[in-house]
Design a binder for these strands. Structure first.
Length: 422
DNA sequence: AGGTATTCACATGAAACTATTCTCTGAGTTAGG
DNA sequence: TAACTCAGAGAATAGTTTCATGTGAATACCTGT
């Protein structure tokens, strides 16, 4: 049976191939030309992986104080005492995650080397859809790191708690759970989960939590009890300034490129510094600029490539968001696009009317106003529209909505969305 | 004129509901000894 | 009798509806001068 299928698959590909070989002489030439050219062009990247988010630098710059704080708080774990729970906050791209992860791996290494008390680190990113964004899934992830597999659904959550505490309490060990983007988790499922974990009573094991968030006001939204136990220690990561960003970029660029000018790096640093000192953004900028330079066949990144990269990043972001929008959200966006063709701001009420009309035409289920309101909020967080709540006095309160899609891609977006309805 | 009350058109929040996917359990069925 | 099948109960989850409550300022309505 299987061989049979394979045979046909093979036949099929051969047929495709023969099409190229015998009927498409021109195509063949073009394609191979691209490959040839690619081979010949010497890449300006030495090692591109250094510029991806997944890369963790060996040495973290300009975070000595924070690293020290972290390690001194966590040190007791080596001797088998429970370290305080830590609450790490600071803006995006300020190095929170990198620092925490580095300190923890070192802690683990030292403990292993000196045969100290057992330490187990569990890192979870709570914003990862379908991975750790609910109480159940977080627990299941934690259990997985103990090599206990649990089904995705069907089991009561209490069972997972029971399994987890049982497993943890088997040995005299310190478990350190890192919850990255903890604010996303709490917003979604509340803080009961944190309470349950921090107040677990165990015979011999100890559990410490490290919560990482980029929302400075996050801790206020917590239950007092949780707040006091999770926030035993707090560490604040300040944004990098332009000089520090420059150093960081320099460090990466040396590994990533064969050669690069200082002006380019300064430019990336300056742009990112304006946007809350986000190092991740600076590095993205550098990478995309490199990609652009490579594509246009330049031998080195120029400042104009950085400008183009800045443009491209924002455009890609919007385009990506729009493409992955569910049907209903697209319908709402469709209505907004239509309405903004002859004016630049619309109100919720107008959108609702247009939207209902569109649904009737397309045989789509009409959602309630409440839901549309939420969809509008979602579109705003994607950066597709800009909505501010205004009061028009006697004439009620509404959202004033404007498109924030860059002009250059507006037509592209329209074609994309309009094609799906009529 | 100056002050206050009303009112509009939604916003915002919480809880309940729906559909889907999945587990677990136990009763009934089947095949082999 | 062990192994398998299958239906029903119960969970988790995403997406939504239902119900309830909130809200800011332009207007309407007073009040006293």
């Amino acid at each position: 049976m299987m061989y049979h299928d394979l045979f046909f698959a093979w036949r099929y590909t051969m047929k495709q191939a023969s099409l190229i070989f015998y009927n498409g002489e021109g195509i063949e030439k073009n394609v191979s030309e691209i490959f040839e050219r690619y081979l010949q062009s010497n890449s300006i990247f030495k090692d591109k992986s250094v510029l991806y988010h997944s890369y963790f630098p060996e040495r973290i710059l300009h975070r000595d104080y924070e690293l020290m704080q972290l390690s001194s708080i966590l040190a007791p774990a080596i001797k088998g005492y429970k370290p305080s729970n830590i609450f790490v906050y600071g803006g995006v791209g300020t190095g929170k995650t990198v620092c925490v992860r580095q300190v923890l791996t070192q802690l683990e290494n030292v403990a292993k080397k000196h045969d100290a008390k057992l330490i187990k680190i569990i890192y979870l990113n709570c914003k990862m859809k379908k991975t750790a964004d609910t109480e159940y899934r977080v627990l299941s992830q934690i259990l997985e790191s103990f090599n206990i597999k649990v089904p995705e659904t069907g089991l009561p959550t209490e069972i997972l708690y029971k399994k987890f505490f049982e497993e943890v309490d088997k040995k005299d060990q310190t478990i350190i759970i890192v919850l990255d983007e903890i604010d996303a988790l709490v917003r979604k499922i509340g803080d009961e989960f944190l309470y349950n974990i921090t107040r677990a009573d165990l015979e011999q094991a100890r559990i410490s939590l490290i919560g990482i968030t980029n929302s400075l006001t996050f801790s206020n939204s917590l239950d007092i009890r949780v707040k006091s136990s999770l926030g035993e220690e707090e560490i604040l990561f300040k944004p990098y300034n332009a000089m520090q960003l420059k150093d960081i970029l320099m460090q990466r660029a040396e590994l990533a490129f064969y050669k690069i000018s200082e002006e380019v790096i300064a430019k990336c640093a300056a742009i990112a510094a304006q946007e809350h000192g986000d190092a991740r953004r600076a590095i993205d900028l550098l990478r995309v600029a490199g990609e652009i330079a490579e594509r246009v066949g330049a031998s080195e990144i120029k400042e104009e490539h950085v400008d183009m990269a800045e443009e491209k990043i924002s455009v890609d972001c919007v385009l990506e968001a729009i493409k992955s929008l569910p049907k209903q959200s697209q319908a709402v966006l469709h209505s907004i696009l239509k309405l903004t063709e002859n004016k630049n701001s619309v109100m919720t009420g107008e959108i609702i009317i247009k939207y209902r009309e569109l649904c009737r035409k397309n045989g789509l289920r009409i959602l309630t106003q409440r839901r549309i309101s939420d969809i509008l909020n979602e579109l705003e967080t994607f950066g597709i529209i800009e909505a501010k709540v205004i009061s028009k006095g006697r004439y009620g309160r509404t959202r004033e909505i404007e498109l924030s899609i860059p002009k250059e891609i507006l037509d592209h977006v329209k074609r994309n969305i309009y094609a799906n309805f009529k």
